[in-house]
Computed example of a mutant assay.
Amino acid sequence: MAAEGSRYTVEELASKVGMSPRNIRAHQTRSLLSAPIRRGRTAYYDESHVRRLEAIKSLQRQGYNLVAIEAILGVRSPEPAGEALELLLQRLGREQPGLVHALARHGVLVRGENGSVEMVRSRLMRSVVGLNRAGVHTVPSLQMLSEVLDRLRLIAEDLVRSTGQRIVSATPTLRAGAMSTWDELDTRTDLLTNSMIGLLTEAFRVALENFGPTAMPDLLAEWGGESPLHPHGSPTIDIG
């Protein structure tokens, strides 16, 4: 039951929006949700928190991840683009709305309030420009990127869960019951999450760097000089 004046404890808010208290606190940590109002030792949430959480849930149902949601809701500022990327983003917005939406679900791009396409993950987009300079058309590169992200999403979920379970099972002090306050749990969770993401990211980079330099020459030789993206002739640059 809601507190007087449409105020809710975290448990009441969780019940109202169908979300766990832990997730609510996690959204606060990411600045997706504003801090509650404290009355003595109790924290209260209001209808603005309800609306915000409903907006987050709606975007998640549409397939957006938290990075994309941060950009859509104005928590994460889009990153500045160079001239080549700016032209590419404008062109994508006009000619490839479906592709923009697919990449926005992964938090790579986001549509601004004025309909413009803005960049959230600059490193990924700059890699696409790098492929373009190597002779690969941009749209096929981005389509491949979207497909790769779809595949990696499932792999990442499995890796995070399996790696996280091993870490927690081997470290009793990381278990929720070993921590005295929610703040301590939130802080430890953030540190663990960021460290594990860093570990898995660098491990994947090492695996690719070990395999890529040998695999690409073999693939090019196998195709007899033709690119699978351009089977009828030489590739052309398509930014501009």
Rank of each mutant, 00 (worst) to 15 (best):
N132I: 03
A134I: 01
G135P: 01
H137C: 09
H137K: 12
Q143T: 08
M144C: 11
E147D: 13
L149A: 14
L149S: 10
R153E: 08
L154Y: 07
A156E: 09
V160A: 15
V160W: 02
R161Y: 13
S162C: 11
R166W: 11
S169I: 05
T171V: 01
R175V: 02
A176V: 03
A176Y: 08
T181M: 01
T181E: 02
W182R: 02
D183F: 04
D186W: 06
D186A: 07
T187G: 04
L191K: 05
L191H: 07
N194Q: 09
S195C: 08
L199Q: 08
E202A: 15
E202N: 15
A203V: 02
R205V: 02
R205E: 11
V206G: 02
A207F: 09
E209F: 15
T214Y: 07
A215C: 12
M216A: 14
M216Y: 07
P217F: 11
D218S: 14
D218M: 13
D218F: 12
L219V: 15
E222V: 03
W223M: 13
G224V: 13
E226A: 15
S227C: 13
S227V: 10
H230K: 09
P231T: 10
P231I: 07
H232G: 15
G233Q: 04
P235V: 04
T236I: 09
I237S: 14
